[in-house]
Structure formats: structure tokens, C-alpha cells
Design a protein around this nucleic acid. Structure first.
Lengths: 133, 133
DNA sequence: TTATCTGCAAAATGTTTGCAGCATA
DNA sequence: TATGCTGCAAACATTTTGCAGATAA
């Protein structure tokens, strides 16, 4: 992950630690999660670095309804997220398929569609196997 | 709106004022918006009443990416929201049309789909007419 | 060397809660 | 009258910011 230097940012110890912790996550994580995992970086640095990664498009932000933002690694391209409500695992959904809906919105409301976000709430196979919540 | 009594809640002055302010909004609003509009009710009462309306299904909560929750009047049935990024107007989208996508998610990931949320970001006709942001 | 990054602590923001008194049913 | 509601203020949780010192380039 030498992309920091490529973009003119400095490659510092705390930043490397935060990036490493982020990359370690397959599932969704919060800024606070990262802060607990990375003893070597202060809270402010964690938040700043997370925002940096967000701006760079390395991670994306999902807003769940409890108000606490969650992040997940963003893999390439346009996609959405399926979030397991039990364990918090985040799966990407690539075949979006809402374009026809968006066309319809544009038509019916007379508005210009700038973007959209879709979140699917699931019970992942592991959690479903483990039994009820 | 006599639904409060119907559900065993008391019909009090501050509550009526909060409900009236909420009903006055065609667009999205935050709890803090309501607090500013309703001088007669304290902050706590506003938050408590908003949560009451949320639990009763009178309003619904949309989570935008800035982390600040926004509410909007919920009209009947399953629907999603189109939010104007300039003026904040919220339009309901009824013909959801993501069912086939959800079937696909269920099939591909082997998960049970519990629910979903779709938000469309638009520039509403009025704002589009007024010119660029 | 110097602009950027860092940690700390304080501030800002948004929401919830404890409690004593008030008001509805 | 008795339970539920209210306002206040304090607590809380999360994120941002100011600043002086450290550090990568």
C-alpha cells in the first residue's frame, strides 16, 4: 500500500499502523474499533487517517440507522453492501440493478438523479447456522 | 392526529406542538430543527416525542452520510426516499423494484435477507431550475 | 530545512438520562 | 389521585480542532 506517497501524503508510522488495521478487516469497522486496535496512534490521528482513506476511496462509509458510522474496505467499482445484523460482516453486492428504478424516479419526480445508496440487511450463513439471534 | 390517545399516550401541549411542527414539514427534518421551531417544548421532550413518532411509524429515519439523522413523514407502506442534496426535500419512492436484486443477494451469498434500505440522491426540479449548487 | 504530521486536551455536536415537580386522565 | 410527562441540567458518545513539538522528505 504505497499509495499514500503516490498522492503526496507522508508515509508515517501511525498511518501505516492504521492502514494495516483497516486492511485486516474483512467486515465493517468503526473509527473507534481501529483506535482500540492501534495503540500506537492517537484518536485524532485515527480519525484523520480514516477520513484520508475515505477521501482516497480506499474505504467507504455506510450509515446504519443507529447513527454510528461504519466503514468497510471498498473494492473497485460501483457496489452496495449487505450487512449481517448479527455479526456485522459486510459483503459487497456488485450487480446493482436499480438503474431502471432510478430512471423511473427521474421520470416521475422530474429530478436529476445524482447518486444512490443501497444497503441490504442480512443474516449471514454462519450466523444463520449458529441459530437465532 | 388523535393517535396518541388511541395508543394510550397522553395528549399534552408540548407533544401537540412537536407533532404539529413535524406535520408542517414536507421535507426532511432533524430533531434539532423541530427543537428550534417549537419554543414551547424542551430539547428532551422533542427528542422523546420524535422517538415516539418513530416507534409509532408516523415518521421514518433516514441516515445520510454526514452522520446526522434526518426524519421524514412516513406515508403508508414500503418505500424509499429521494433526497435533494441542495434543499433537503424528501420525496417518497414507492415502486421499489429491488426484489430481484435481493433474490440474487440471497442466492449468491447464501444469506437470509432481513431488510433493505435505498436512498436516492437527487437535484429536485426547483433546485435544478435555480441553477447549479 | 520546512511543510506536514502527531498527540494531547479542549471544544463542538447531537442525544440520552436522572430527578423533582406538574398535569392529564 | 396516581401515573405519566415535562424541563432542566448533567452525562454521554462521537468526532473535530488548536497548538506546540516531532518527523519525513
Amino acid at each position: 500500500m504505497g499509495r499514500l506517497e503516490e498522492r503526496g501524503y507522508r508515509n508515517t508510522g501511525p498511518r501505516r499502523a492504521v492502514v494495516a488495521a483497516v486492511l485486516r478487516h474483512d467486515d465493517g469497522f468503526s473509527a473507534e474499533d481501529i483506535h482500540h486496535e492501534v495503540a500506537v496512534a492517537g484518536r485524532a490521528t485515527v480519525y484523520r487517517t480514516v477520513r484520508l482513506l475515505l477521501d482516497m476511496g480506499i474505504i467507504c462509509k455506510l450509515a446504519l440507522l443507529d447513527g454510528k458510522p461504519l466503514y468497510s474496505l471498498s473494492h473497485a467499482g460501483h457496489h452496495h453492501h449487505a450487512v449481517c445484523l448479527k455479526c456485522g460482516a459486510v459483503t459487497d453486492v456488485y450487480n446493482c440493478g436499480v438503474d431502471s428504478l432510478l430512471d423511473n424516479v427521474q421520470l416521475v419526480t422530474g429530478s436529476k438523479v445524482l447518486g444512490h445508496r443501497l444497503e441490504v440487511f442480512i443474516l449471514c450463513p454462519d450466523c444463520a447456522a449458529t441459530g437465532a439471534p
